[in-house]
Design a protein around this nucleic acid. Sequence first.
DNA 1: AATTAGCACTCGTTAGATAAGAGTGCTAAC
DNA 2: GTTAGCACTCTTATCTAACGAGTGCTAATT
Lengths: 340, 340
Amino acid sequence: MLSNRQLLILQVIIDEFIQTAQPIGSRAISKKQEVTYSPATIRNEMADLEEMGYIEKTHSSSGRVPSEKGYRFYVDHLLLPFHLSSADKKIISNVFNEDLVEFEHVVQNSAKVLSDLTNYTSIILGPKVFETTLKQLQIIHLSSNTAVAILVTNTGHVEHRSFTIPAEIRASDLEKLINILNEKLSDVPIIQLQERLQKELASILDKYVSDVDTAIQYLKGALFEQQPANLYIGGITNIMLQPEFNDITKVHSLYSVMEKEDVIANVLRSYQDGIHVAIGQENKVHEMQECSLITATYSLAGEQVGTVALLGPKRMEYSRVISLLNLLSTQMTNTFHRWI
Amino acid sequence: MLSNRQLLILQVIIDEFIQTAQPIGSRAISKKQEVTYSPATIRNEMADLEEMGYIEKTHSSSGRVPSEKGYRFYVDHLLLPFHLSSADKKIISNVFNEDLVEFEHVVQNSAKVLSDLTNYTSIILGPKVFETTLKQLQIIHLSSNTAVAILVTNTGHVEHRSFTIPAEIRASDLEKLINILNEKLSDVPIIQLQERLQKELASILDKYVSDVDTAIQYLKGALFEQQPANLYIGGITNIMLQPEFNDITKVHSLYSVMEKEDVIANVLRSYQDGIHVAIGQENKVHEMQECSLITATYSLAGEQVGTVALLGPKRMEYSRVISLLNLLSTQMTNTFHRWI
DNA sequence: AATTAGCACTCGTTAGATAAGAGTGCTAAC
DNA sequence: GTTAGCACTCTTATCTAACGAGTGCTAATT
């Protein structure tokens, strides 16, 4: 469909625009080493490329700018394998060489490193606690009527909730309840906990514990209400360095949506296995339609548990970013695998 | 020093500027109900106020704008007691009527409510874990050589760290260690934990546990390294709504410093008991010198444990904000007191 | 037949000029 | 002591002209 010359010109336009954020003119293209044609020839090809929708003008006599279709084609067909510098590789692997190993910790550091390396904004969706299994459940009394419930998973993740113990539940009953639960529910996937609590265990517990319904109700309330989204955002200010975001209203609308952790978490969750690139309007969240979002998933025991993403202008360094995400998600998967 | 008329005019200028963000002219002041003088008279007084440094011109024939000295005088001498609307009061007290009581939870909600009510950015420094006491210490094994250490305080705060257990420590020793620690260290202030661990307990533990040094070393590493700052920021995008921040570079520099949690935490910690107002250059952090920061502290058992703050333009609604902070910090203190 | 040089044309950007308007300082009158 | 009046200053908005980067088209060249 596209001639080799058109491919070359499209590639040059996008590469150049990614660097400069300025419309590219025929003269500038002609001057590039790999291009051997005169500006006039290039103008003809550019007119064709524009007709096909791969590039656009900002006004009638301006140079050309990639369209979203252009970026899409570039990402799908023109991406050259990018060789990460050994410095970059080292910085990333350093994240995984720390001694105190913990999901949250690794994830947070990864977010920071990723945003520092790219000057984009990194978003990491932490492991879904639901897909891990229960290691231990504990209730620790703070005073006569308050306590904190702690849930530890096999991945070292800790969830906790404080709650007030209603007068009608006896402390000894709560103790018994927890003992039984630990015995019965150890290594059960978190996602099944609620169901198991209700269905299988109610009858058993009934024998030992009085007023089991209320107790379970409170336990559920304590443990499952308001699961936090587990989202880490790094380098959020980087977006303001991009020339396409020197308009405060654009930054404001983007930042407002970034504050809504549940919205962002849902966006990331909607991308499964592998690397995904959403360019501009391809993003469903309206406020992100001036941006590109690149996501990669990481896994634990073969099960995909989280997402690493980078948010930047449509004019992103796709090649480098994809390589970085690839490396990082692989390393995360490897590291977490070792822990089980 | 200042005549009543000058006080009145200064008050009107600042009140008006806080609302409009526009320089105030003599004509506008004269039109105010409470002012009975002609523009010419007011111009004379304004010239005097300017000479004394309370107000400034933006250019030679502009209206006047409060100087930082003016704001300082306003805050110190002209602040009228502000009557919060009952709606505001209700919104705040609702934060404390939730059932699931927990420091983090209350603090986070407070930050959100505060920024929503004011349209400024709220910053809350969570309770210093050091000033609370240990309730329980736990080690939960994840696998043969990894575990998570959990520390619960009397305030329902939970700290946790994952760590790898070195080969030279026996699991049974770790168990014994924890048992002894729980027995001996219950209700000890967290801040003293490290010291007590090292000095008083080493000898006792020595009898029961082999290679106690290594074990303690690892425990300390797991518990005390990298204490997170415990900082909650709400409504960070609100700053962009202020006309003085429609320059992207200003927003960027401010946001960059807001990302450095340790810097912000130190700033807040530097203000003790009561309400403090830092206006513009009075802020030590350079990036905040276009802003005003108002802080209030809250206490637990008579001990000040955290700080609530609002960051906005110098042109802040000081009166309302101070009332809100007062109410909120009092409520926090009361609520937390009840929990002990 | 493909490529390129040449040229008229378009449009955004910048600089300067002008006018309007808001506000001041000062003087003289009240 | 207060105020009306007026000349003056400075900002802002609008307009115009010149400039330049880049295009599209045509005709010449390879």
